[in-house]
Design a protein around this nucleic acid. Structure first.
Lengths: 286, 286
DNA sequence: TCAATGCCGTAATTTTCGTTACAGTCGCGC
DNA sequence: GCGCGACTGTAACGAAAATTACGGCATTGA
């Protein structure tokens, strides 16, 4: 057994890959990225499979591992296995950081990951499950139409939710942002319809106004807002307050999206067979 | 490719091995022991190595995996890799929290929070900062127009990014989903323009086609995709692979959004005074 | 003690995999 | 616009791996 080139990268092959990213060509970088995104499983597959996954040719993968300093693909795989073994041997050594003090190696993007995580955790911790279930129940009531509306930035969230909801139940309508159309859409709102509104600071006047009018017409409002709470909360039947702090001049909508996805999943689950069949039928139509 | 013998032992191959210990012969049991004590690394090695480690012959190992029901050694390895992948995809960020054992007090919403956190962390950990900076640089180049496009669900992300980008720099255009308009929008793409595309599975044919045509016209493509990588990556100059796993039949876009927001913030920061002034001017217009 | 059954390893075979040579192509700079 | 160089995929080659055939050997029961 020959001791291979001493890539004495005790830390991690993954780090070695990251450190070498600069020396790689474009296609090779794609291979590297696939490896990192699915580490280490991707590298344990045969070359052809790895290459196909990264949408590059096998030789490109070979050149990639050669540039990293390995003697060949088998050598590379062997070291991956050894690392895997060593890692699982010691209980949870260190998934991410190693010992050092809080030294943000990547001073710009890491704070964003941390903020996003904090926002999601902070939001869900304060999200009452009763509220959550009640909203799901509301969204599953097919006798009600569902209307979705957002502000300047959060309109995208309304669309995202509408796209999913429309697949699992009928009568889901996104209210587009063009103010001119809003008067018309108000007329479509029947009593007991559901209006899901996204409104974070600075709370848009027109959005708030639309919500008020809708409430006056008897719609039930579900409001997604930030921790400082939109004035619409007075009219809302359910309020979901999300954390939006970010190291930026913009607020973050990550937590909002996480809640939206949880709702989508819950509704899909709750509708069960009905949703399954509807999705199936819709796919046939394409 | 044929779906292999459905060992739908979702839980773990290791359990399957343990359950089968009774049916094995003495030598085969040695192989099983070695596999279990060095799980799963031992099974990912070539047969000869595995056999040597267990002090048995290669055919014995082969008979062992055959008895477990696999179609062959490669099939066995493939399933080991898949399990490894699925396992690392949900790293259960924190061991057991305060309050003792893993008691999901809120069995429905907590898994979503955890998945979202894992996705964000997994995505950013493998996001090369060089790539990130290069994309920011590209987005700040005001000589290039920026076009944004998404698929059925990810169109919302494209809109979200467009809404922010449009505030800090000119020539930002969202390409709406109506297929009829796409031909026209292609003509607007000039050489060296930037096309930012969102495409997660199942990769939409029309989106991929648009990206290909755009690339052919000389546009530089920034692709946001999932860990399985859209086929568009071949044409893309930059690929951002995000984790999208969720305890649901839908994939999660939380990590994508987190990256988008980080980019937005970085671009705003990078444009500095120019962006500040532009935002100011736009507010005056309202 | 002998025969039969079933386990196991050696060795040959076949398939797949990793590797490398080569040619096309893309981008870059003059 | 035109070469030049570098990057990338195709295809052929060689090597190693997985698989199978076969024969020895141990164990068991008569």
């Amino acid at each position: 057994m020959i001791a291979t080139a001493s890539i004495d990268d005790r830390a991690s092959i993954a780090e070695h890959v990251r450190a070498s990213l600069g020396r790689l060509t474009a296609q090779e970088r794609k291979a590297a990225q696939v490896l990192l995104t699915n580490y280490p499983a991707a590298g344990l597959a045969p070359v052809a499979e790895f290459a196909e996954r990264a949408r590059v040719s096998a030789p490109t993968v070979l050149r990639f591992v050669a540039k990293l300093g390995y003697l060949g693909y088998p050598d590379f795989q062997r070291q991956l296995r050894e690392e895997l073994e060593a890692q699982l041997a010691s209980p949870l050594a260190k998934p991410s950081r190693k010992g050092g003090p809080r030294s943000p190696e990547r001073p710009f993007i890491d704070p964003f990951a941390e903020a996003a995580v904090a926002n999601v955790q902070g939001t869900f911790r304060n999200l009452p499950e009763d509220d959550f279930s009640a909203i799901v129940e509301l969204m599953c009531d097919r006798r009600r139409s569902i209307h979705l509306l957002g502000g300047r930035f959060t309109d995208a969230l309304a669309r995202y939710l509408a796209a999913h909801l429309g697949l699992v139940r009928p009568d889901v309508r996104h209210v587009p942002s063009g103010v001119g159309l809003w008067r018309d859409r108000l007329l479509d709102l029947k009593r007991r319809d559901v209006l899901m509104i996204f409104d974070i600071r600075r709370y848009q006047d027109d959005v708030v106004a639309f919500g008020r009018d809708a409430a006056a017409r008897g719609a039930e409002i579900v409001l997604f807002t930030d921790q400082w709470i939109s004035p619409l909360s007075r009219q809302a039947k359910h309020v979901v307050a999300c954390r939006v702090a970010a190291p930026s001049r913009w607020d973050s909508s990550v937590a909002l999206l996480a809640v939206v996805e949880a709702l989508t999943a819950a509704v899909t689950e709750r509708l069960g067979e009905f949703a399954r069949k509807r999705i199936e039928d819709l796919e046939k139509l394409r």
